[in-house]
């Protein structure tokens, strides 16, 4: 095993952060473009997104050499440091997303006698404001997870400008998958689930295009690094796990499945999530080969 400076915990963080912010913004965007008919998507997106981001941030802190000095990050703001941008994006998202989640929680049955949550009841203005802000913060956060890797000297990460885009697209796809999974688990309206599945298919196609662009560029600018993923020790994970299970199979399942069953979209979304995690894992570890 080669030396890794950013270990598996960082792959998990990159994955959870992507799923979290994307579940949040895909839920709100669906509701927004749907002329406010998809409130449930926005609500579940908020419920999925905020806890996942908090877990992700805790994982990030746990990986630090000195976790209890994390507040040193909060004394610095630096545009040249992608990590610094990320610290501030994550902090802002936790606050903004957290407020958004509170406005939803306040409507739940269990919150009716809770004076703290009651303060957030009927705050439609706050919900829209934090929703719009959260879309922007979420998209920037999803992109940052890729740009973070790009601002290093690892050839696989720094020889391409597509990594931020790739992680953003992949995050969006996994965020939608997480939403579908929750909707299917809660036996919500199957029509909405299939709409999401179709939207996810468009994103997956986009992701395949970005992957193709990225690796054709990498094969020219950093052939040795690209071959670690395409033909080397990570090739099986890449072709079978990421491309096969994570991208192609879900599309086939969505196309072939009956429009009534919950099983197919559930299976497809689990596969998308597994593929999304493997993408982070492979890119993170393959990038550190030979450092």
């Amino acid at each position: 095993m080669h030396e890794v400076h950013w270990p598996i915990i960082i792959a998990i963080y990159l994955f959870l952060a992507g799923v979290g912010v994307a579940a949040f913004y895909t839920g709100i965007l669906s509701n927004l473009f749907g002329n406010w008919k998809y409130r449930k998507l926005a609500k579940y997106g908020s419920y999925i997104g905020v806890p996942l981001i908090i877990i992700g941030v805790l994982l990030l802190l746990a990986d630090l050499g000195r976790p209890f000095y994390f507040w040193h990050f909060l004394l610095t703001f630096k545009l040249s440091s992608t990590m610094s941008i990320g610290v501030w994006l994550l902090s802002a998202f936790v606050i903004v997303g957290g407020l958004n989640m509170l406005t939803w929680l306040a409507e739940e049955d269990f919150a009716q006698n809770n004076s703290l949550l009651g303060a957030f009841k009927g705050k439609e203005g706050l919900r829209s404001l934090t929703g719009y802000l959260g879309i922007i913060l979420g998209i920037l956060t999803a992109a940052y997870t890729g740009v973070l890797l790009a601002s290093t000297s690892a050839a696989l990460w720094s020889s391409t400008q597509y990594l931020g885009l790739l992680f953003l697209v992949s995050a969006t796809s996994t965020g939608m998958a997480a939403l579908m999974l929750v909707l299917a688990w809660r036996k919500e309206d199957i029509g909405i689930i299939h709409k999401l599945a179709k939207a996810d298919m468009i994103v997956v196609l986009f992701e395949i295009i970005v992957l193709a662009l990225m690796f054709s560029a990498l094969s020219a600018s950093a052939p040795a690094a690209a071959s670690v993923v395409l033909g080397g020790s990570y090739a099986i994970w890449f072709w079978v796990g990421i491309i096969g299970c994570g991208l192609v199979l879900p599309v086939i399942i969505d196309l072939a499945a009956s429009k009534k069953a919950f099983g197919a979209p559930m299976l497809a979304s689990i596969l998308v999530l597994v593929g999304g995690f493997l993408l982070r894992y492979v890119m993170l570890y393959a990038g550190q080969v030979g450092l």
């Binding site: 969006t172 996810d200 986009f206």
Partner: peptide, 17 residues
């Protein structure tokens, strides 16, 4: 990333929802 974000985020949601 941000140019891609514009295309990707608008297209699927506008088409589907």
């Amino acid at each position: 990333a941000l140019v891609g974000a514009g295309v990707m985020l608008i297209a699927p949601f506008w088409l589907m929802f």
